[in-house]
Amino acid sequence: MSELFPRKQVMGFVFSLVLTAAALTVYFLDVSFAVGMTILLATAFIQAAVQLVGFMHAGESEDKVAIYANIYYGIAIALVTIFGTLLILVWDM
């Protein structure tokens, strides 16, 4: 806690920039839809995780379990909602 240099923050920032650059390949290179989506999903979720753990200190307090349960539950339901909606209204209509 007492170290002066914000190592975690700087690393997180550099990592975010690298991931953003990686995501940009789908724009600048000619990739197929499937490959492009895979890259985007990977970079987006890794970046979100970096923010969550590195910047937001999700795991530092005594309520770690509650916080992570809350986030995982939210993400699970969010994915169910998005993909369920797409299944109903687009893919299987």
Binding site: G84, L87, I88
Partner: peptide
């Protein structure tokens, strides 16, 4: 609580989505 988010389509089975859904 978890399943309650997984069943909403049963309010509109007749909306025209396929038998799989």
């Amino acid at each position: 609580s978890f399943f309650s988010f997984l069943v909403w389509t049963h309010h509109f089975y007749t909306m025209g989505q396929g038998p799989l859904t």
